[in-house]
Structures are given as structure tokens and as C-alpha cells.
């Protein structure tokens, strides 16, 4: 009995151990359901994607969708689930997942239809009180940062200029607080770091919290600049103004960010259309039973 116990325990432990470490047998099945991965409510990436896919950012998703709370969580989910489909900021995509072409257009292509502006917001009457913040705003819109932005996003696109070089101001000092969207904060942290080497006296603090807190911080005067990853709605502008005239709320585009549609690497398909996305992500549509039906 004693020996048997030992054998059983060791066998069980080893079985469990290998299973836990290896994690076996991920297989893609065309006849198996589509697993929807989305972002949480309030995410700018979600708003941008849903606007494109379903025509309305407030569309309710079908039952059973996985809500990922960050860019990395979206990737992890798509990477580990062979049936998954998701979307993520192009700057974040790694080789662990596969990007689909959208309506036949590759995400690297300029004509790629699914994208949004990453935006910095501020109150024009408040920012004049902080010269350092004004100068930093000038810096992030200048041609000095074009290369940095182009590493993951696009700097010169449509409304974006980034064509005037930054004018260094000697002896400039002060503090700038930037708060908001997690999609924008890594870029902003890089820009803040670069700015520090240009204007040594200025301390830029970037708080990575979310588009919502970013808007609130501007409203309450806790931050000089707010980062949001979706266009402001009129009600949001009214809320941010709070006491001031709504016209003081300014939003400035910083970068153009494409949203890539991603699937697991085992997935056999390469292209998707706006119509198909609508059927997948819109609870008012009938949807598809499985991957095969979508491509039938």
C-alpha cells in the first residue's frame, strides 16, 4: 500500500506538472465557434473599432465575448486561443498573432480603413498658466518627434502636421502633468523622456490611467494635458468644460493609429470584411456558427 501510494502520487504529480507546463494540443478547427475578444467599456480602441465594424461605438456585443483589460491581454488571449478573433493597436502587435487584411487591404498599407487618431486634450484657458505645458504641447506636435511616432504609429496623416521644428527655449523650467489613455501613454512616456533631454528644466510626469480618468483630470484641473484614444463627444466636452465655456476644450491629434484585426497563428484565413466584422461583433446580427460558415 505504501509503495502504491507513492507511485500514484508521483505519477499524478508528474502528469499534472507536464500538463501544466506544456499545455497540450492547441488545434484550430474551422468547424468550431468563433471566440470574440474585445476591450473593456470606455476603451478608446474599442470605441474606434466598434464604430467601424458596427457603425456605432455603443453597440452591445454578443454573449460570451472575452473582455481583455489591456492591449497585452488581447494579445495573450488571441495567442492562446486558436478560435479567437480580436483587435489591437497596430503599434502593439507582435509576431505571436496573425493580422488579417481588411477588405483586402494590408495594415501596412496607407489605405487601410480601420484607424483612429490618438488625441491630447486640454483647456485653452488653463494651459496659458503653465508655459512649460504649452511648450511641451508644441514639442509633441513638432517635426522633432516624427521619427519616434513613426516607430509604432503614423505622424503625418490627414490632420496631423508635425512639420515645424521645435524652438528650444533657454532656461525654461516647470512641471507638466499628462494623464490618460493606456494606448497613448507608452508613446507619451518616450516623448517626455526625449523632451527632458531637450529642455532639462522641465519635469514631465505621465500617468497611465485611462481615457476616462484623463478627461476627469482635465476637468478637475489635476493634469495639464489629457490623453484620450477616441474623439470627444459633445456631452464629454460639456462635462470637461465644467463651469467654463465648452469652446475652451481643445483636442489635438498626436498620432494616427491603425487598429489591426488579429487571429491566432493557426487560423487558416487571411482576409476579413467590414460586413463580416459587423456580423461577429454586433449582437443584433445573427452571427456565424463557426469559422467555416463565415467563409462559405
Amino acid at each position: 500500500m505504501k509503495k502504491m501510494t507513492k507511485v500514484i502520487v508521483i505519477a499524478l504529480a508528474m502528469a499534472l506538472g507536464t500538463v501544466a507546463l506544456v499545455g497540450c494540443g492547441a488545434k484550430y478547427g474551422d468547424d468550431k465557434p468563433i471566440k470574440i475578444v474585445t476591450r473593456e467599456q470606455g476603451s478608446g480602441t474599442k470605441d474606434g473599432f466598434m464604430e467601424y465594424a458596427t457603425g456605432d461605438k455603443a453597440t452591445i456585443l454578443p454573449k460570451g465575448a472575452i473582455t481583455a483589460r489591456s492591449t497585452a491581454e488581447v494579445l495573450s488571449n488571441v495567442k492562446t486561443n486558436p478560435q479567437a478573433i480580436g483587435y489591437d493597436s497596430f503599434g502593439y502587435i507582435t509576431k505571436d498573432v496573425k493580422m488579417l487584411t481588411l477588405e483586402g487591404v494590408s495594415v501596412q498599407d496607407d489605405a487601410y480603413p480601420l484607424a483612429r487618431f490618438l488625441t491630447v486634450i486640454y483647456k485653452s484657458n488653463k494651459i496659458v498658466g503653465n508655459h512649460a505645458a504649452e511648450k511641451f504641447l508644441e514639442y509633441i506636435g513638432s517635426s522633432d518627434v516624427t521619427d519616434k511616432i513613426n516607430e509604432g504609429y503614423q505622424a503625418n496623416h490627414g490632420d496631423l502636421q508635425h512639420d515645424i521644428p521645435y524652438q528650444k527655449e533657454d532656461g525654461l523650467g516647470g512641471k507638466v502633468v499628462v494623464e490618460g489613455s493606456t494606448s497613448l501613454s507608452p508613446l507619451m512616456e518616450s516623448l517626455a523622456e526625449m523632451y527632458k533631454s531637450v529642455q532639462k528644466g522641465v519635469e514631465v510626469t505621465v500617468i497611465s490611467s485611462g481615457s476616462g480618468p484623463g478627461r476627469d483630470a482635465i476637468r478637475d484641473g489635476k493634469a495639464d494635458l489629457g490623453m484620450v484614444s477616441a474623439e470627444l463627444s459633445q456631452s464629454q466636452i460639456d462635462d470637461i468644460a465644467k463651469g467654463d465655456d465648452p469652446s475652451v476644450v481643445v483636442s489635438a491629434h498626436i498620432a494616427y493609429d491603425k487598429i489591426a484585426v488579429i487571429v491566432n497563428k493557426l487560423n487558416t484565413h487571411d482576409n476579413i470584411t467590414q460586413l463580416q466584422l459587423n456580423k461577429i461583433y454586433n449582437s443584433n446580427e445573427t452571427g456565424y456558427k463557426n469559422w467555416a460558415e463565415m467563409y462559405a
Partner: peptide
């Protein structure tokens, strides 16, 4: 999982109260 659905099975995207608070508190206002 994080889907706000009444749980009907063990393997289905659902939500809990703590996950709801932590996931949305930073985006929420009002």
C-alpha cells in the same frame, strides 16, 4: 472573461464584482 452575463456553465466568459470594479473604476466617471 469579463462578459456581463448570468453564469450558465463553468467554462463561459462571466464577471465578478471585484473584477468589475477593478476593470472599470479607472475608466469610469459620474
Amino acid at each position: 472573461g469579463g462578459d456581463h452575463e448570468i453564469p450558465k456553465g463553468l467554462m463561459q466568459s462571466i464577471n465578478t464584482m471585484t473584477a468589475l470594479i477593478a476593470g472599470e473604476a479607472r475608466e469610469a466617471g459620474g
